[in-house]
Amino acid sequence: MTVFFTLLGKILPLYLSIVLGALSTYFLKCDKETVAKILLFILAPLIVFNATLNVKLDFSVIFLPLFFFLFSTVLAFLLLLFFKKIWDDNTSNLLAFSTATGNTGNIGIPLAILFLEPKYVDIFIFTVLASILYQNSVGYYITAKGNFTAMQSIKKVLKLPVLYAFILGLVLNLWGFKLPEIFSSYSSYLKGAYAILGMMLLGMGMEKIKLNSSFVDMKFISYAMFIKFIIWPATVLVFIFLDKHFLFYLNDKGLYMVMFLFSIVPLAGNTVTVATLLNVKPEKMSLTVFISSLISLFYIPFAVFLYMS
């Protein structure tokens, strides 16, 4: 249990940032939209560019974002078919979309910084592209129940600055370009700033959470927690087992840890943004994301403890 409490001690400061975010909104009236824009348009593109530029591209590294994008897509459509039998409204669309992805950015990247070696941190950030593309393409289709055309979805993806940062980093990586050494420490500052502000942003969104009985849907919450905290890691662990003994695609303990961390993060905060934009039960989604974040405070160190045992 000593290892568990050590891991808990590592992750706890991240969650204190959520409290700071909530306090900054309540007492200082900080504007969360401004923080979100800083994350989306400045910090996220910069760290994605840096990670893509520095990562050593090979089959195993490229395989990871492809694997998770396809997994999220297939899982979302399978869940949609299943949930349509339970809910006859757009609740099924929202739940299928939200449980097929996770908070690999605001929570996943800080976890990667805590638990992975620097080279694997860059690989993790590179893999986060799978979540970004899923949430802004397939996710929009499912949540909007087909209200967006293919062209509209493509336009939404093309507006993401992260996409262009990724393309630029990839091109320069293939050309063998390296940033001057003076920028190496600056990239660490960027990751730290993203981690802190990303966690604070979760807290800054708590003022919209309401405990009205109409929003506390235990069936919705239970399905979301089960899929995110049981189905996701179980599926990834099955793949890791198969790869270790039969497939040999990755054959790297560090990459296995990247995959495992990717699978144990809570629900993505971006799902609330999508639900709000499309007016698909945003209050219910906010409460569910908040609960999953609270559970992950103890779930993540416990899951890492079991994985490392």
Rank of each mutant, 00 (worst) to 15 (best):
Y140K: 11
I167N: 05
Q152E: 15
I182D: 06
M151V: 13
M218P: 00
Q152R: 01
A195G: 10
S213P: 04
F260S: 11
N173M: 09
M199V: 10
G203P: 08
L163A: 09
S187K: 04
F229P: 05
V138Q: 01
Y189W: 10
V265R: 03
I230Q: 00
Y141F: 14
N212L: 02
N147K: 14
L172Y: 07
Y256G: 04
M257I: 03
L247Y: 10
W232I: 05
F248R: 14
N251A: 10
L170E: 07
S214C: 02
M204N: 07
L202P: 01
F215N: 14
M218C: 06
G176N: 11
N212I: 00
V238R: 01
V238W: 00
F148K: 10
L247N: 09
L202E: 08
S188K: 13
S222V: 06
T235V: 15
K191H: 05
Y249H: 03
D243A: 03
K145T: 06
T235R: 00
V238T: 14
I264Q: 08
M206K: 01
F166T: 12
L160D: 10
V162Q: 09
M204S: 03
V274I: 15
L163H: 05
G205F: 03
M200Q: 04
V216R: 07
N270A: 10
F166R: 02
P233R: 02
P233K: 02
S187D: 11
G205P: 01
V162I: 15
S214M: 06
I154H: 01
F229R: 06
K244S: 14
F262K: 09
L201V: 06
F239A: 05
G205D: 08
V162H: 05
F215H: 12
Y223D: 03
K253A: 13
L163Q: 07
N212E: 15
I142F: 01
P161S: 08
D217C: 04
T235W: 02
I230W: 00
P233S: 09
S214T: 12
S263C: 08
S184Y: 10
G169T: 10
A234I: 12
G146P: 00
V272T: 14
Y223W: 11
K244W: 00
V265A: 14
W232Y: 07
K244C: 02
G176P: 03
A144I: 05
D243E: 09
S222D: 03
S153D: 02
I182P: 00
Q152V: 08
L237I: 11
S213E: 13
M206A: 12
V238Q: 01
M200L: 07
P161A: 11
M218W: 15
M206F: 15
S187T: 13
L179S: 13
